[in-house]
Write a protein that binds this DNA or RNA. Sequence first.
DNA 1: GATACCATTGTCTTTCAACC
DNA 2: GGTTGAAAGACAATGGTATC
Length: 340
Amino acid sequence: MLDAVNGLNRSYEGVWAKRMSVDAGLNRSLVSFQANKKRAVYRWFKYKEAFSAELVEYLLKKHRIKSGVMLDPFAGIGTALFAAGALGLQAKGIELLPVGQTAINTRRIIEWELEQADLDRLTYWRDTEPWKHTDAAKAVNELRITRGAYPDETLQWMRRYLAALEQENERTAAVLLFALLCVLESISYTRKDGQYLRWDYRSGRRQGKKKFDKGRILSFDEAIGNKLRTIEDDIRGYKRHGDLFPVPGSRAHVLLHAGSCLDALPKLKPKSYDCLITSPPYCNRYDYTRTYALELALLGIDEMGLTNLRQKMLSCTVENREKDLLAINPKWTKAIKVLV
DNA sequence: GATACCATTGTCTTTCAACC
DNA sequence: GGTTGAAAGACAATGGTATC
């Protein structure tokens, strides 16, 4: 079977061989998340799987694409969408993981809906730390895989933070929730390490032969304070003459389809896109419901939701259940015939 | 009811180039 | 010179189900 798959791959590569080339102008920073770490807005959420906005700009410039519609069927946190959108293209994305959907939707709120008064509320939160002045608390959703992820004190502050942000309007609350989403790893006993969540020895979880020490775990105040400061600085950085987005085209035209591209791709209208930039998932290895478990829990996913999400993913490691691919797209007959 | 079997879920170790 | 990471290989724990 493997020979048949490899044969199919080779013949398909042959179709595209003349169109593929090695670009010496690219380096590791550009094609990974590294370049986003220092870039305003893109640096908020550390999504290691992303490529850089600079790469998107590089590719569009190189191929002289200045208008039209771009598609990213594995949109992630929307790096390609917003980078292309800011250059004047219409950008459409498909994303299954709620973490990515939240990142994209929050950024759309910031670009299109956030008002000056909302921005002032973020400044208020940064300066006065309202979670410290409330007794109200809201439970932090927990999953089996996230149990014991935070120090007790941190968990208490998270509960108060969640309760306090509910007093804000929808726009401000969305940004505040996203800020918390961005710091979860840094305030937890976990680190996203390769394809699984690695646990610090202080978590109380069962340890392996080698003790894992993730180093300093940030306090809630320090982590969220830094994040709110960064987000606010970046948004205000846009500001000129009282308008958040004065540069024509800088406010990205981004549309998101929240769901699986297995469902969405066959329904797209043919020949309606001018270019496609994407970073597809590994087909047999990575399971995002493990590495992004903290974030998914915060977003309210329950055990059943987590299981369903895991099985919906295109890839999902060796334990993935078989999918009825022909029911999704009858045109895949040839490829499927090789596999059986 | 005990047992075997199997799919699913969760974790560990090794590796080494690139990064900081 | 320590740390990190869109590897890769493997295995343990768990829970459901078929079989006796």
